[in-house]
């Protein structure tokens, strides 16, 4: 590994800082146009709206910090933060562990690899389908499959999806079940690790565990990092899953009231877009903080080859 590190600073990389600036601008041009043309405007607009009283149908009225102070006393907001945090902290590690585990299992030459990969990916494909709501109810409902299976062992089941105590857990299962996307990213990452490194390690007599620890894992850290950052962001924004069980209400008894769902209810259900915009920016601050911490911590465990 060290030999690679020594190669990093060739004179070439210092050639022409101006030229690099220019090249970077050209490469980033489409992104700049998109950022300033499409993304920034609506974003700033929503920031502005967070300081107004805006019911969508009439012009917004400036209301100062009202929306922001209101958050302090909004019990449903606090509830939704609780729901969202517990969801993020449980479902993201579980999903990533499963995705990485199966990716490793699949990467090491298994016969029928394409078959398995497709099968494991299938649930992620139907994640957005209308059928998923019905499906999930049929699995976790009072007379659902899970209870039938439990019945075989003489265990009396319950309505997993409709009891406030367990509804959120079924959503964690749903999220873990659709682990296909991070798995595929892991697989692609694994495939990018040069075979030559393993060959060299084998010649040196390294065991497979050793190879995993000193080659696979370090070289995969950028991808693990990527999945971690993105899955956290996605978990904070979870929306569809909540619709699955509660049809958008966040029920039973607000036990699946995800942050985004609450935000959406305020904005479109109660025509309270000013407050919803403030909520969006609070979410952005929270997620941004998590991401920043993640990036800061990545210095200590993520290995880049540059």
């Amino acid at each position: 590994m060290s030999s690679i590190n020594e190669l990093r600073r060739l004179p070439g990389s210092q050639r022409g800082a101006r030229q690099q600036n220019k090249a970077a601008f050209l490469f980033l041009l489409p992104w700049f146009v998109g950022l300033f043309g499409i993304t920034i405007g609506p974003m700033l607009a929503s920031l502005y709206l967070s300081f107004t009283d805006y019911n969508l149908l009439q012009p917004p009225r400036l209301s100062g910090l009202d929306n922001w102070t209101r958050m302090l006393h909004d019990e449903r907001l606090h509830k939704s933060l609780g729901v969202t945090f517990s969801y993020v902290f449980v479902s993201v590690p579980l999903q990533l562990a499963l995705a990485l585990g199966l990716a490793l299992l699949l990467d090491k030459g298994v016969r029928g690899l394409p078959f398995y990969r497709s099968v494991f990916y299938l649930p992620s494909l139907i994640g957005g389908s209308v059928a998923i709501a019905v499906l999930w109810r049929t699995m976790f409902g009072t007379t659902g499959l899970v209870n039938e299976a439990l019945g075989l062992f003489g265990i009396q089941g319950q309505g997993w999806i409709s009891e406030p105590g367990t509804a959120l857990s079924t959503l964690v299962v749903l999220n873990v079940w659709t682990f296909g996307s991070p798995m595929v990213i892991f697989l692609a990452g694994l495939r990018q690790i040069p075979t030559s490194l393993y060959e060299a390690a084998s010649v040196d007599g390294a065991t497979r565990l050793r190879q995993f620890r000193s080659i696979t894992l370090p070289l995969l850290t950028p991808i693990i990092f990527f999945n971690l950052v993105l899955q956290i962001i996605h978990a904070f924004q979870t929306f569809t899953q909540a619709f699955v069980v509660s049809g958008g209400t966040g029920g039973p008894a607000d036990s699946t009231l995800f942050y985004s769902l609450y935000l959406y209810q305020r904005g479109f259900g109660h025509f309270d877009m000013g407050y919803a915009s403030a909520l969006a920016w609070l979410l952005l601050l929270i997620v941004g903080l998590f991401t920043a911490v993640n990036f800061w911590a990545s210095k200590y465990w993520v290995f880049y080859d540059d």
């Binding site: 146009v33 300033f36 043309g37 499409i38 920034i40 405007g41 609506p42 700033l44 607009a45 502005y48 709206l49 149908l57 009439q58 012009p59 917004p60």
Partner: peptide, 23 residues
């Protein structure tokens, strides 16, 4: 197209900001 997009962005912002009165 770039000009149009830039104009669109400004318009989107200003429309929301001033949100011309209804009717």
């Amino acid at each position: 197209p770039f000009r149009r997009i830039a104009i669109g962005a400004v318009v989107s912002l200003s429309l929301v900001l001033t949100a011309c009165s209804g009717g």
